[in-house]
């Protein structure tokens, strides 16, 4: 009896949770672009079906445990030997199967749609921006404008942006929840993600794939601007921002936290980390923990320090094999 009451309490509390949860403005439920909107449609569709499943199963659960509970007056009731019931078993195999299909079809449609420039934006000339994830910052290169930013990316509204993503080292996941779903950025590979902002505004972006001690702070801002504002920003960068040098770029790749940076010129003139044959820009010696036993590291032939005499090696004695 007491237990029953407690469980009713529990459900009441959980449903209050659910309701208050829906009231807050959770970012996934507030899409600011077509990609996120497509996904939200899918999420809502699945929530509907899952709610039906939960209601049906919970209905049966509560009814059965209530109706067939042991009571002082039914102690001599001996339950029947029931082996099964083919009709019921077919029903509860078939219906979930149909639900799976009902969820699968829009899911497949969405999967294909998310890879394309969204419907209704085809006449807009898309902008390509290269994204390079590094420990622990995001580097954005605008090849057309020939500018590079760190930890923020400005984009014009209503324009599909083709993000071409790669990583200088660890695996990251590039995610701007208000604008759409995420995708990994991986070294010596290129992935592509198309995002569009419907409205001007500042949107939080982050790395969602754990990549070491600096991971929590690997966030960036997506600033969607009107076309005029955006053009003005580009103009200003071209005038004011310092030139990106190779030395400076290599410094950027070391495991650090940086604020926002802006440069003229992109690193693509020297290195595209998406190229499978590109040099590795790794610095193992910089990753030793403060405490704990240091293992040995390996000197790699294709490391930028070995492959390119052009770059002077500031950490001369670093490639240690000490043991």
């Amino acid at each position: 009896m007491k237990m029953k009451k407690l469980s009713i309490y529990l459900f009441a509390i959980i449903s209050i949770f659910l309701l208050t949860g829906c009231e807050t403005n959770m970012v996934v439920f507030n899409p600011q672009g077509p990609n996120a909107e497509t996904i939200l449609g899918l999420i809502n569709w699945s929530l509907l079906w899952m709610a039906i499943v939960i209601i049906v199963v919970m209905g049966m659960f509560i009814t059965f445990i209530w109706k067939y509970r042991e009571r002082p007056d039914n102690m001599d009731y001996e339950p029947p030997e029931e082996h099964g019931n083919t009709k019921w078993e077919i029903i509860w195999t078939a219906i979930p199967f149909l639900i799976v299909i009902a969820l699968l079809i829009p899911n497949i449609q969405a999967l294909y749609a998310l890879e394309e420039v969204p419907e209704g934006y085809e006449d807009k000339e898309p902008i390509t921006i290269h994204v390079t994830g590094a420990d622990w910052k995001w580097i954005f290169s605008y090849p057309e404008e020939d500018i590079e930013t760190v930890n923020y990316v400005n984009i014009p509204e209503d324009t599909p942006i083709i993000f071409k993503m790669t990583s200088a080292g660890t695996m990251q996941s590039f995610w701007v929840p208000a604008l759409g779903g995420q995708k990994y950025a991986m070294a010596k590979m290129e992935t592509e993600l198309i995002l569009t902002a419907d409205n001007p505004g500042s949107y939080m972006g982050k790395n969602s794939n754990f990549n070491g001690p600096g991971y929590a702070e690997m966030e960036f801002e997506v600033l969607a601007q009107t076309q005029a504002e955006y053009d003005e920003w580009v103009e200003e960068v071209k005038e004011r921002a310092p030139e990106l040098t190779e030395e400076k770029y290599i410094e950027l790749l070391k495991p650090t936290h940086l604020g926002r940076l802006t440069f003229n010129g992109t690193h693509l003139q020297w290195i595209n980390h998406a190229d499978p044959n590109s040099n590795s820009y790794t610095n193992p010696q910089l990753y030793y923990r403060e405490h704990g036993y240091k293992g040995k590291t390996f000197d790699e032939e294709d490391n930028y320090k070995n492959a390119d005499e052009m770059i002077e090696n500031e950490h001369g004695g670093d490639s240690h094999h000490e043991h």
Binding site: V28, A36, T38, I39, L42, I43, S46, L47, M50, V100, L103, L104, N107, A110, L111, L114, S173, W175, P177, G180, G181, Q182, K183, S208, N209, F210
Partner: peptide, 15 residues
């Protein structure tokens, strides 16, 4: 099941 829907998972993944 919600996570199994790949397109929706783009918003749930790693969260």
């Amino acid at each position: 099941v919600m996570l199994a829907m790949a397109a929706a998972d783009f918003q749930y993944h790693n969260t």
